[in-house]
Design a protein around this nucleic acid. Structure first.
Lengths: 218, 218
DNA sequence: CATTTCTCTGTACGGCGTACAATAATGATA
DNA sequence: TATCATTATTGTACGCCGTACAGAGAAATG
């Protein structure tokens, strides 16, 4: 049972969850710092080490919370598998873009939390439902995760401090030498929208389509 | 013409290119630091500010060099478009995984260098060759970049300090509750290979396939 | 020559993660 | 109840980081 309610020493004034919750509200382009979170909690920085072994633990916890915030429940239900995957993907993308610096976290901390496990299992379920064999389903699930996170972080990097609208406008104004880069110049308007949800949905659709298409006999 | 050979003041002892070259050899899990690179060059840290405005500039330069290191020339030639894209993608993945911390760079610094432009143009060319209209080609090109970078950074994050073989073994040994996560448990062996080139090729193939498949009539 | 311009250095500031010892609060024990 | 064992929190410190600023010295210009 290990009831921890009766421990010696002073009462704890915080909890790991509380710390993570506060940190979740502190994305500003960087991952919230230990010192910053501590300050917000009116506590000296080293106090946090009572609840978290190190900064990496905070990062892992944040990763899991972000996955949860995108609501893994949309991955189950009676809608079609495509729709469910797309909905979760779009939602996760939004969650990550809402908090500047959140996307980059996934490339520093492994996704080994409980929510990651749930999301993984449900993605697998969706792909099995789509008719994939287990091996392909597993690969497809990972591919989807890769795509969502890759897209979100590249968009976050491109966005930097400006808004989506500003970025689109800036890209459209870019001067491209049409002799050296004819195709790029000709598709400038499309390239300007690379970071929109529409483009995200387009590429996700392509990926899903390819995942359920059997490999071409080479 | 702006010949800069006759400038006042002392001779420069370094060049931006030299700095970037040294930095390229210093990935060790983090992006090389200004201070670290300076030390390697036997120079005080602030000296580097003569050649680079700030750390972000170093990061952008490194991003471009990494793209170049993957050899954009494989994107042209008389092999088929699939093959050319796959070759560059696999090569870029390798370049990024060879240097721990390199992949994460792409999510901090925008890809706006000269090599990025060349790679973009050639990717577009490959997709046009595949029969895509310009808009789809542009979207497909971006999707490929997203996928390669996403995959490389997730793999880098998962890899951490260990080797690929060790990671595969560790994943295989993972204990998954088969009641809560039946599909995950059943596909453990496949999940163990998520970070291999094979999985990378599989998902890239899926993405390419989907990119050249016209959207299904909803 | 003196002047201008430019590179490089010394020094410093404010941030970061976190190690370590001391302090104070609490529950368990005698 | 008095003591002891345990624990949360703090003060302080170390070694990193990026980089701002002022000054010394080198080189080309007049």
């Amino acid at each position: 049972m290990e009831d921890e309610t009766a421990r010696r020493g002073p009462k704890r004034s915080l909890s790991a969850d509380q710390i993570v919750t506060v940190a979740m509200g502190m994305f500003d382009g960087e991952t919230p710092s230990i010192r910053g979170v501590a300050a917000r909690l009116n506590v000296r920085p080293n106090t946090l080490y009572t609840y978290l072994p190190d900064r990496a633990a905070l990062e892992r916890a944040l990763v899991d919370r972000l996955l949860a915030e995108a609501d893994p429940d949309v991955l189950v239900g009676r809608r079609g598998w495509r729709r469910r995957i797309e909905d979760y993907a779009v939602s996760l993308r939004e969650v990550l873009l809402e908090r500047r610096g959140a996307a980059a976290l996934f490339h520093a901390a492994p996704m080994d939390g409980p929510t990651a496990a749930i999301v993984g299992e449900r993605l697998l379920g969706a792909f099995v439902e789509a008719g994939l064999d287990p091996v392909s389903a597993s690969r497809a699930a990972y591919a989807v995760i890769v795509h969502v996170l890759g897209s979100a972080s590249l968009t976050a990097a491109d966005l930097g401090d400006t808004t989506e609208a500003a970025l689109i406008e800036a890209r459209r104004q870019a001067v491209i030498d049409p002799d050296a880069f004819p195709l790029t110049a000709a598709t400038l308007d499309t390239a300007a929208t690379w970071n929109t949800v529409d483009q995200f949905r387009w590429s996700l659709r392509a990926l899903l389509e390819g995942c359920v298409t059997p490999p071409r006999p080479s």
